[in-house]
Design a protein around this nucleic acid. Structure first.
Lengths: 336, 336
DNA sequence: AGCACCGATGACAGCGCTGTCATTCTTATA
DNA sequence: TATAAGAATGACAGCGCTGTCATCGGTGCT
């Protein structure tokens, strides 16, 4: 019943070749006659041969696994990133090891340090990608990685999304609708994007010569609850804004709830905009105007670049920026 | 600069023992004197020694990785499961390989078949856990796994959540509020839970001697869009229900949107209930009454049982059921 | 003291594969 | 037809660890 799993030796014997030739076939190496190749494949098929990864790894010092380092409270974002990365992984015969972690955890460095020999490289997502000691660890140990971040680090390949430009665009859109008092809810202070999005908001105001009003800016934490609280502050203030731009969708959901609760009509009395275009946004009531980040694409690209790097196909540095896109839905409109 | 990674031999040399003794220390094997153990640990520390997983795997025929097989459109569910599983994995020095898959994909079996040697065992989530050929593959190849499902398969350990009871309880709750015409939106037909939840709904009606009305039941697909469509059907029908119970939260969100759109007040004119208690539910307007599934706990338990199995600590069969819990929020109330 | 026993340690083979280098077979060219 | 160049293949060592079995040394008993 318990049949021993077949090995490269079995295949070699059945095909009448040496194990090295079998190895060649399975690693797509050149210089194998087509007829030999066919023999080997046929033999492998009848024996249901699967290369032993461990042996392969040990001999080649490769794991065919990549790790994904992230710390993101947003599950939509996480699954979408995983999805994109997995697509590319599978195309290349790699597997994905996920490693969510707390950016502020003291054990992080040790943790990753232990992981380094279980993977060939890492995809490091924001905000983990901005942790200096981690980047240094990766650098010192010469571990291939691709960073998704708003800022570069040494010569690591990195991919960014035009957060600032997108925030600027959204603010502009609200201004064009006729809004002048636009509330803004900042994201988690440790997250690089938070600053960029705020900067985009400010820049749009500047370009229109509208004074930046600190009272219209609230500090959130990227979660629903903080969005709710900030929105209450804004909505119950003496001179309430006619629009609120939250730095991500969960916070915008909080704004929606706060507004509903106070009896403010959307978008009639208040326009609400989010950021990220999570499924949440489409399913809110009313559906949220937001910014669509090409998350899957970012993940695919990052993984692809990592593959290139692992296979030595990456020449020179790499940095790439993808643009986010405005998604207009029913939560925004002209002010009364 | 590029220093060779230290191996067991280096540690053995520095500690003045044989490599086997080092191996013993790192595998927590008995029969090593404490003083020896200390020497080895000290040596390992100064050399920053990390066991090479590949070598370990090859020699022991173990990977210290477990795979997670799932197919779930709901990202909250997925991340929560991952989170729970990872907790237990880390406690045991295991890593987690995720493998989302389409339950109806023809390549599934092959896919998993290829994975089998990269992991020591699988956690198989619904609805993948109900795919017969897959279970057979796991059985035939004698691959340890734990199934999360509503139904058993052979003697595989399995964990279920009391879906039916929970749906019954929710229906009862709505009945107790005074509702008599309760719409029900069924989940994805391929997903085992869908049937159980419907069965729970029916049972609650029966126990109150309320006739089951087919016109009150709509077939959904577990996503927002289908919830929306089904809700429209129900709400625009001649005699519309006073409450709608959707088989999961995204569909309940769809109901909310449809109701808002038609101008139906919630919960004044319509009570809405969901299932799963995803973050979505808390953040909806009004916040959704729903059923809280102990997802993290399920994941933790499943992983723990798998660990037991892998370490030969699991004696006999294992099946366990966790109960879901009613979460009352503002989307339900007495009918007018 | 002599013996059996058990805890502590080591020697060594081998897990299944890849890398290196040697060897053999083809093919093109003079 | 002889010869060199290159393609195709194979032999074999080792990757770093664990499992097996042998060995050593201390302890308690007679």
């Amino acid at each position: 019943m318990i049949t021993r799993r077949s090995t490269i030796t079995d295949v070699a014997r059945l095909a009448g070749v040496s194990i090295k030739t079998v190895s060649r076939v399975f690693n797509q190496e050149p210089n194998v006659r087509q007829s030999t190749r066919d023999k080997v494949i046929a033999a492998a098929e009848t024996l249901k041969y699967r290369p032993n990864q461990s042996a392969r790894q040990l001999a080649s010092n490769l794991t065919f696994v990549i790790g994904m380092l992230y710390d993101n409270p947003n599950s939509d974002y996480v699954t979408e990133v995983q999805y994109g990365a997995l697509q590319v992984c599978r195309e290349n015969g790699y597997d994905l090891l996920i490693h969510p972690c707390h950016a502020d955890s003291p054990g992080l460095i040790d943790d990753v340090s232990g992981l380094q020999h279980r993977v060939d490289g890492f995809i490091v997502l924001q905000p983990v990608s901005d942790i200096l000691p981690l980047n240094q660890l990766l650098l010192e140990n010469n571990i291939p990685c691709v960073r998704v971040s708003q800022r570069p680090f040494i010569q690591f390949p990195w991919i960014s999304v035009g957060d600032m430009a997108a925030a600027e665009q959204m603010t502009e859109y609200l201004l064009n609708l006729g809004h002048r008092r636009i509330g803004f809810i900042v994201g988690h202070p440790e997250h690089g994007s938070s600053h960029d999005r705020l900067a985009g908001y400010r820049r749009a105001l500047e370009r229109r010569d509208i004074a930046f009003d600190e009272d219209l800016v609230e500090q959130g934490m990227f979660d629903y609850e903080s969005g709710y609280t900030c929105a209450r502050n804004l909505l119950l203030s003496a001179e309430r804004p006619t629009a609120i731009f939250a730095s991500n969708d969960p916070m915008a959901m909080g704004v929606l709830s706060a507004a509903h609760e106070v009896g403010i009509e959307i978008p009639g009395q208040l326009s609400v905009a989010g950021f990220d275009d999570s499924p949440l946004a489409r399913h809110a009531w009313p559906p949220l105007t937001t910014v669509r980040q090409p998350i899957t694409e970012v993940a695919r690209l990052a993984t692809d670049v990592l593959m290139q790097k692992l296979q030595g196909r990456l020449k020179g540095d790499f940095d790439h920026r993808l643009e986010a896109e405005l998604v207009r839905r029913a939560s925004t409109g002209r002010p009364n």
